[in-house]
Design a protein around this nucleic acid. Structure first.
Lengths: 229, 229
DNA sequence: TGCCGAATGTCAGTAGCTGACATAATGTTC
DNA sequence: GAACATTATGTCAGCTACTGACATTCGGCA
């Protein structure tokens, strides 16, 4: 139950379950159940064809309670991925100062995917679920829109981390923001390529890492001079 | 009424109004009125506090008719901006083959903003409206999400243009997709900076162009080696 | 003038989402 | 452990975005 590497997004500090009261544990369980139920329903019958009432009913809570845990239907779908993104941010925070900003970002993603795939396998918030979610998102316009918005919110956090790391004021120097945005964009198109690539698809997290690295490698060349020889 | 440089998104070929039948002209007028009315209402009382019924009523059509013109409430808000983006794509298509891909993209944006600001001023689909829309979008999460999705759809088109331009297969060579994504990201953060920058704000389209160029200039440095001297 | 097809209006219904209030479960204090 | 405060949950009523079905009206055309 304890997920020390992916702090849940309920605002709890990462402490042991047993020190939490019954109330908190029950809430956590309800939340996890809702995410799992929603995930299963979305994958089986599609996002649009799944109603909030169904999700709530399958966990035996009222629709109103669902909306007290998640602001909207999209949020429950993106919850797993959101945890993974939070973990990426944690990785970035801990990167050694000697690394170049781009190096730190790059190392953080591969590290995040590797650790997540090692520690959680196919658990409720695991890598398996995250990868399935990416497919679902990429094929569901409404979800894609919500996901993109979430992503650029994260970019704000990343911008702040980079700026602090390098001792810069993000209002003056645009490099932190530009790097965060460009990097996020490359990761996004990597997801896109991954969903279309059945081989990488089968390779799981490792395939994803490979694709992301290939795209990052092409970022420089894509911006540089003429492409033709 | 004729907007030769920003073909409307109704699927009409860009021909003179007078050769169109009464029916087509009426449809165009209704559409334009809906966009203008929605725009005015959104700016006055906010996006969320404006209902579709209000918009429809202020143009004297039924709510059902509104939804025959626009798939959803977001679409009417993004219509003006969508036209501008289409024009950017047109510019890109016409860029000389001698230019570097990045040069072509860069020239296309500045060209798009300049031409739009010269030719349409403050018309219903003009630059004035587009700039106001950017502020609205940036401060309205739902709109921002929809806008981001639209943007990455455009990125698909841009990717195709770049690939054809350079004679590449976008499935093999990731550079077109990567450049389109990174460029789009930089333009987006430029919009963000623009909304926060009152001076550039006051300068209108020229201020926007200046900000975009500043951000593009920093793309290389942001990716390169250590930032500290 | 009269016919055809397209645009519009009307109506009923579904689903996402919210506020208000009552109820029940939990935590706390003496 | 009894009384109280806090908090999660359920219920209900209501709003708004959006859709399908059908009737009506309007523009185009013979």
């Amino acid at each position: 139950m304890a997920l020390p590497l992916t702090p849940s997004r309920t605002g709890q500090p990462a402490s042991d379950c047993r020190v939490l009261g019954l109330r908190e544990r029950k809430k956590q369980r309800t939340r996890d159940s809702l995410v799992a139920a929603a995930h299963a329903l979305f994958l089986r019958q599609g996002y649009a064809r799944t109603t909030v009432d169904e999700i709530a009913a399958s966990v035996d809570v009222s629709q109103r309670t669902f909306f007290r845990y998640f602001a909207n239907k999209e949020e429950v779908a993106l919850a797993v991925l959101a945890d993974a993104e939070d973990y990426f941010v944690d990785c970035l925070r801990r990167r050694p100062a000697a690394e170049t900003p781009l190096q730190a970002m790059r190392a953080s993603i591969t590290q995040a995917w590797q650790v997540l795939s090692r520690d959680e396998g196919s658990g409720p918030g695991g890598v398996q679920a995250a990868l399935e979610l990416i497919d679902l998102i990429e094929s569901t316009p409404v979800l894609l829109a919500a996901h993109l918005r979430r992503t650029i919110e994260q970019e704000g956090v990343v911008t702040a981390i980079l700026a602090e790391r390098e001792g810069l004021d993000p209002a003056t120097d645009v490099r932190p923001r530009v790097l965060a945005a460009a990097f996020g964009a490359v990761v996004r198109v990597s997801h896109l390529s991954w969903t279309a690539d059945t081989a990488a698809h089968a390779a799981g997290p490792d395939g994803m890492i490979a694709i992301i690295e290939r795209h990052l490698d092409q970022l420089g060349p894509a911006l540089a001079g003429p492409w033709r020889n």
